[in-house]
Design a protein around this nucleic acid. Structure first.
Length: 600
DNA sequence: GAGGTATAG
DNA sequence: TTTTCTATACCTC
């Protein structure tokens, strides 16, 4: 798929032929003359497919904990499902197990063989040893002290079967193939998902701890062989510093333009086993602008497969929406105005697509927020008084990337940084029955151009390689509950009175003044205390998807470890739906039941 | 709050 | 040409 002069992404067939992401078009054609390149400028379809993928996967799990990573990956926390099935597992007949997918309906689920893993494992099992570790789980299970390692073994097996089931459902019901990793946290499940791709799944086998009787931890073994830069959370800056350090260079004496994979061969083990290495040394090595406070211990954890980050529910609305374009040359005000106008039109359209929904009672609708079809043409900005805003951004930001001035000594400065200015977003952009073109026009004149002048005060002393226009600082309208999985709804309703003071949820609603906003800031979940997966090993799955055809379908399943059933913060004033288990205030249940009866 | 850095797909 | 177009979290001031 092409953007500008670049192949931005390609499917596995193309990769097998030697193509890769961010490759120049001409290179790609040379490598693979019969390549089919499609323009990939309009991502509307992909956004929609991504949303569909996410909603589908989320609908299959109990916890509501489904987190997106990009368009095509989803982490799922399925701990509760695994624990439920673990508790009712009959160890005398593992081969004839039934996996329950519904707490209250024992008919819902599938048959499976709990004496082995579904799909691949890492390390791969040469010989199928179906009964390993299970011998210790005797019929007297209840009175025996079963080791954490044995429980983890079974939980991961269950996870592997659930993953296989979900992948099958995804293919049957949605037509997406997928790749999945199953482990106890996001880091491990994502990485182990890479072991067999595409269209496959891999479970990271125990032991997760190194012990005298069991032996070396598979987690360490697995992590140790990873290139330092392949570890999620260690990007090019950190890996560069780590490489320099591990190779014995004085970080200050680092020289040479480090580009591409500069120096290879530095693995996680090289850093981990480096003399005197530890969180403090790492903190020292990695410190610098842009690194966060905790970098040392964070990276030290990553090297050991430790990742305490929980799986976060996706938000109803994004935190920001931005539209950008890059240019070979952009240095006149006339050109700039034209581009700002184009970007602003796009931005308004995206705001309507992603920040509004069809109006409906209780905010519990049939999920039909498909305004996409109306929003396509460049002038086709939706004008629809029956829609309402899900969130009002309060800030508009304009960023540019000035082309670095060529130095007199011929050396081109490498700095390629963005600069930005922001300002409150005027409320006229929320008028749903004004033509978008007029809104964009007004916005450019009154807000965007002044911002541009702030960024570039000299009338014609700029050469821009990029412009970005963004809206940020979303104020969500609290009557929507669809991303809460039921958990926060009690709290949201408690706040509704205050919220309604500020927001007209109708056609002409206007953003409240900044002074008026009440306690919406801490609408986030209570902070949970989390344990290290290695201290308390419990299975997690990550599913990633195959990158086939049009759709990148990476779904990551993470089976718990973060949430215990006793602290999920459900509000007291709520009932739960007998069909789907969603938690909601009693008065919302009637409408919710109608939703089940009439799904589309 | 404002502006910038780092990371990811 | 460290590139494309986004999105997020977190840093300092």
């Amino acid at each position: 798929m092409q953007q500008k002069h670049i192949i931005v992404t390609c499917n596995y067939a193309a990769r097998r032929r030697g193509l890769h992401k961010l490759q120049l078009i001409r290179e790609a054609r040379k490598t693979c003359p019969d390549v089919i390149i499609v323009l990939g400028e309009d991502l509307t379809r992909f956004r929609k497919a991504s949303k569909d993928l996410y909603n589908f996967l989320k609908s299959q799990i109990w916890s509501g904990r489904a987190e997106r990573l990009g368009f095509d990956e989803v982490f799922l926390d399925v701990s509760d499902i695994i624990d439920f099935n673990l508790n009712i597992l009959n160890y005398n007949s593992l081969s004839d197990s039934f996996f329950h997918l519904d707490r209250s309906d024992p008919e819902v689920g599938f048959l499976y063989d709990a004496s082995y893993y579904a799909g691949n494992t890492f390390p791969s099992s040469k010989l199928k040893d179906p009964c390993r570790a299970i011998s210790t789980l005797s019929p007297s299970f209840g009175t025996l002290s079963v080791s954490d390692a044995d429980i983890l073994e079974v939980r991961l097996r269950l996870g592997s079967h659930l993953a296989q089931y979900l992948r099958h459902q995804l293919e049957e019901q949605r037509g997406y193939t997928s790749t999945v990793g199953i482990s106890t946290n996001k880091l491990l499940s994502k990485l182990v998902g890479n072991v067999n791709k595409p269209n496959n799944q891999t479970t990271l086998r125990p032991p997760y701890l190194t012990t005298p009787d069991i032996g070396q931890s598979n987690v360490l073994m697995f992590m140790d062989d990873h290139e330092i830069g392949k570890i999620p959370g260690i990007g090019c800056k950190l890996s560069h510093k780590l490489r320099n350090y591990a190779l014995g260079h004085d970080p200050k004496l680092d020289e040479g333009p480090v580009w591409g994979p500069p120096r290879d061969g530095v693995k996680a083990r090289d850093v981990r086993l480096h003399p005197v290495m530890g969180p403090d040394v790492l903190a020292e090595v990695l410190k610098g602008p842009g690194s966060h406070k905790d970098t040392g211990s964070k990276v030290w954890g990553l090297l050991h497969g430790v990742d305490n980050a929980g799986i976060e529910r996706a938000r109803i609305v994004p935190r920001q929406i931005s539209i950008e374009d890059s240019y070979l040359r952009l240095d006149t005000l006339t050109q700039v105005k034209k581009e700002l106008y184009k970007l602003t039109i796009s931005l308004i359209r995206r705001m309507h697509l992603d920040l509004t929904e069809a109006d409906s009672d209780y905010g519990i609708d049939r999920g039909d927020d498909d305004v996409e079809d109306h929003g396509k043409g460049s002038r086709g900005i939706i004008v629809d008084a029956t829609r309402r805003w899900l969130a009002h951004p309060r800030t508009l930001r304009l960023s540019t990337r000035p082309r670095p001035p060529t130095q007199s000594d011929g050396t081109r400065s490498r700095a390629f940084k963005r600069i930005s200015r922001s300002t409150p977003l005027p409320s006229f952009v929320f008028r749903l029955n004004d033509p978008g073109v007029l809104i964009a026009d007004k916005l450019v004149d009154e807000v965007v151009l002044p911002l541009f002048s702030q960024l570039h005060p000299e009338a014609s002393d700029y050469d821009l390689s990029l412009i970005n226009v963004a809206v940020t600082d979303m104020m969500e309208t609290a009557s929507d509950n669809r991303n809460s999985g039921g958990r926060d709804i009690g709290r949201m309703f408690k706040r509704q009175d205050e919220v309604l003071k500020n927001w007209r949820v109708e056609d002409r609603d206007v953003a409240p003044s900044q002074d008026d906003r009440n306690g919406l800031d801490d609408i986030d979940r209570d902070t949970q205390s989390m344990k290290s997966p290695l201290e308390t090993p419990r299975p997690t799955e990550v599913a990633k998807g195959s990158e086939d055809e049009v759709l990148h379908t990476q779904a990551s399943l993470v089976d718990d470890m973060v949430w215990d059933s006793d602290d999920d913060g459900e509000p007291e004033l709520s009932g739960s739906c007998s069909t789907c288990g969603a938690i909601m205030p009693p008065f919302a249940m009637a409408a919710h039941e109608r939703f089940h009866l009439n799904p589309d």
